[in-house]
Design a protein around this nucleic acid. Structure first.
Length: 778
DNA sequence: GAGTTTGAAACT
DNA sequence: CAGTTTCAAACTC
């Protein structure tokens, strides 16, 4: 269809259409787009806020999460809010969206915004930029805009910013790649994990899209991941497209659609899902075509088919996730609620009529919440767990395309199985995948190879029904933010004994706790307690399982064995369970025991401590070699790689400039999944074009992503959101950090010597940006 | 569903 | 830092 026709169909005068952003976008697709955004305020802004320290003061539940789960709650909340009352959203987004914009668009774009905001908000600490912002209404406003500074900018600018902010990875990609690649990426982003994209893209996803990577965030990374994940899961591919890189497209479309009245006519009640339909179906054809261009891959059909499932499932997932990150969310939601008094908390937070959290308890303490929740957003553990879980989600989604060894604890084991989940299973798989926590995967996949016990992550929330089942069946999964539910009787849910509390989420309906103080109404108490605990142990809320990267060090041939990079930060101390039961945190986390463990008679199916030691020594040896080779590589990188490196550097630099550190921490957890995937497949993924690039992506991911701990597993998403300030590398964003520090010593007992070595090793590899991986053969 | 086991968290 | 107690999840019946 030629342009005139399309325009006509769209209901937009051709001349007008030509002036429209989308038109320009199409025509300018090939040229390099303004890179400004990369370094521009948005990112910086976004990232800075995501200070883990502040968070820790948090990651994807996790509930995302992470995972834990991070932004979902917000997103959903806002989505609903939007539906219920578009007025609120319109405020700041007005420039971008406009009255004419279809609700669907609005919501989606907002969702993106939400991600950003959530991140920002995650950072509650005073030092953060966010803190500087007005605590109440203004923030919410910003929230809508996507990032504090964005709202002010013109539409196009905003769009770009949004893109950058939200879809970090995607955006950057766009900038650095040629038009063809850009499209690919864009498309890939749109499609999210589901598509069979080239390895490169997958990697990116792994890095950036993961989300799982929730994560993240954990937690924060989780947020971003989640966003992607969520969008993927919830919205389905198409919708996702809108969310991610789709930003630009969406934005453009929105503009385009502005001219087309019919879009506006979209049903008010449409949620995202519906929106997707609108985008795909309703929009003027010209717009649509553009959109389709991106989708012209063979995946389109699949995506569409999947979309239906996703739509249904997505809702469920949302509901489940809402509860996550509630600490963080609570404050945010409150803000918004207050900003818009019309909204009924219950309504806004409820999912399918169910209150995600004790919204009834929510009272306007906006201020307190804002400052009070320093970090509270994604809680770390959750994120950690979540992150992996989330990652799993993403991976799961991705799995459709390729076999992924899921990093998530259990998931990893089942990776292949997951891979098997093909389209035929997609519907069911999706459902499970949608489960916020990593459980999803576990559910079905794990069962095969993994020990029976391993099913930790069963997302019960899907069947939110019976409170009786509240009692989490899921082990790991339990950890998934979304699925957390406690049964505390004496701790008042204010100690780490309480999984909800430990995960950084409020207790909710499904919990069977007694005398619970872990509720929004007791926010101050919760925060105070949290701080206290953190003061004692800064890592108390950090993810327990650290998943590092891609240099896939396999513990052994056994599929169940996890990469050396993925280990419990603190290690277990099992004496009677032989690390074969969920009493063992390593086992529960789906990771093998390592040097850091003090377990006796370890028989961890995911990797025994004994097995780890020898291997570890080898790794150590390799490490030295790796260092050398890395240096060489750095010097001898080809032009190609150099270019990539340069770009990477830019990102890094930007990251450096910005307080990215927090993200870094996320990286581990989040990225790990990917890495694990790589390793599991035994392909040394020389990632894409160059390891360096890959590394950069990873970094970026961290930077951008954060929110998760995707957390988790799925999250591997998110991950280590909470990295305490201490751990955060001040200088070298990329590598340092994390891991090493993160090791969870919940009790902050420093990692054992062996553990330290391990982490250091991992860290070094990360520093090589994955380059070593290929070179060093690790 | 009640009781037991287990190991992390918390305390000393 | 080690030992002990408390706690709640995981597990068993």
């Amino acid at each position: 269809m030629d342009t005139p026709e399309r325009a006509k169909i769209a209901g937009t005068p051709l001349s007008k259409f030509e002036d429209s952003p989308i038109y320009n976008f199409i025509n300018n697709l090939s040229p390099i787009q303004p890179v400004k955004s990369i370094d521009s305020v948005p990112i910086a802004h976004t990232h800075q806020p995501l200070n883990f320290a502040s968070l820790s003061s948090i990651f994807s539940s996790p509930h995302a999460n992470p995972p834990r789960e991070s932004r979902h709650p917000f997103t959903d909340y806002f989505k609903q809010e939007n539906f219920s009352d578009n007025v609120g959203e319109s405020s700041l987004c007005s420039e971008v969206s406009d009255a004419g914009r279809p609700s669907g668009f609005t919501s989606s774009s907002q969702e993106n915004c939400t991600m950003m905001c959530s991140l920002n908000e995650a950072t509650v600490d005073p030092p953060d930029e966010c803190s500087a912002l007005p605590s109440t209404f203004p923030q919410s406003t910003q929230y809508y805009s996507g990032s504090p500074d964005h709202n002010v900018k013109p539409c196009l600018g905003i769009k770009m910013d949004l893109k950058l902010d939200v879809g970090h990875t995607p955006v950057e990609f766009h900038f650095v790649q040629n038009s063809a690649e850009r499209r690919k990426v864009l498309f890939a982003m749109e499609n999210g994990v589901q598509e069979n994209l080239p390895l490169e893209l997958d990697k990116d996803k792994g890095v950036g899209c993961d989300w799982e990577s929730l994560i993240p965030d954990d937690g924060q990374s989780l947020l971003i991941f989640d966003s992607s994940t969520e969008s993927e899961a919830h919205k389905g591919v198409d919708e996702k497209a809108v969310d991610n890189d789709g930003h630009s497209i969406v934005s453009l479309l929105s503009n385009c659609t502005e001219n087309a009245d019919h879009l506006q006519k979209t049903k008010p009640d449409i949620s995202h899902d519906p929106f997707v339909h609108n985008v795909n179906q309703d929009p003027p054809q010209n717009c649509r075509e553009v959109f389709e261009k991106e989708h012209e891959t063979d995946n389109a059909t699949k995506m569409l088919s999947d979309t239906c499932h996703d739509q249904v499932d997505s809702r469920q997932q949302r509901g489940m996730r809402r509860r996550c990150l509630i600490f963080e969310v609570a404050s945010v939601s409150k803000r918004n609620m207050y900003s818009d008094s019309k909204l009924n908390p219950l309504t806004s937070l409820s999912f399918k009529g169910k209150s995600v959290c004790d919204t009834k308890n929510l009272k306007p303490k906006i201020r307190e919440s804002l400052y009070a929740l320093p970090g509270i957003g994604l809680h770390l553990n959750a994120l950690a767990t979540t992150s992996k879980d989330r990652m799993v989600n993403k991976e799961t989604l991705a799995s459709e395309k390729q076999i992924i060894s899921i990093p998530c604890s259990v998931g990893s084991l089942t990776s292949t199985t997951a891979g098997r989940n093909s389209l035929s299973k997609s519907s069911s798989a999706v459902e499970k995948d949608l489960c916020p926590s990593g459980s999803e995967v576990d559910l079905q996949i794990v069962s095969d190879d993994a020990p029976k016990d391993v099913t930790p992550n069963i997302c019960e929330e899907l069947s939110q029904g019976s409170p009786k089942k509240k009692r989490r069946k899921s082990g790991n999964g339990g950890e998934s933010e979304g699925c957390k539910r406690c049964n505390c009787k004496k701790s008042k849910c204010l100690k780490l004994y309480c999984e909800c509390f430990a995960a950084g989420v409020y207790c909710s309906e499904p919990c069977s706790c007694q005398g619970c103080f872990n509720k929004p109404i007791h926010e101050e108490t919760v925060l105070a307690t949290r701080r206290q605990i953190e003061s004692r142990n800064p890592l108390a809320f950090a993810p327990k399982v650290i998943r590092t990267s891609e240099f896939g060090l396999e513990m052994g041939d056994d599929d169940k064995k996890t990469p050396a990079s993925a280990r419990h930060k603190r290690g277990c101390n099992c004496k009677k369970s032989n690390c074969l039961k969920k009493y063992c945190e390593c086992y529960q986390g789906g990771v093998g025991c390592s040097i850091g463990c003090r377990c006796e008679g370890c028989k961890n199916l995911f990797g025994r401590k004994d097995d780890f030691l020898p291997r570890f020594e080898e790794l150590e040896q390799a490490e030295k070699e790796a260092d050398a080779s890395c240096e060489k590589d750095n010097e001898s990188l080809g032009d190609d790689q150099q270019n990539n490196s340069i770009q990477i550097d830019e990102h890094h630099s930007s990251g450096h400039i910005l307080p990215i550190t927090p993200y870094q921490s996320c990286r581990l957890s989040v990225e790990l999944p990917f890495s694990s995937i790589a390793s599991s497949t035994s392909t040394k993924l020389s990632i894409g074009r160059s390891p360096a690039v890959y590394g950069s992506h990873m970094l970026r991911k961290c930077e951008m992503v954060l929110p998760p701990p995707k957390l988790e597993n799925n999250v591997s998403t998110v991950v280590e959101d909470d990295t305490p300030a201490i751990l955060r590398p001040t200088a070298a964003p990329t590598t340092t950090g994390i891991r090493i520090a993160s090791p969870n010593q919940k009790r902050v007992s420093p990692p054992h010597g062996g553990a330290v070595k391990l982490f250091r090793f991992i860290d070094r590899h990360l520093m090589c940006g994955g380059h070593c991986e290929s070179e060093c053969g690790q």
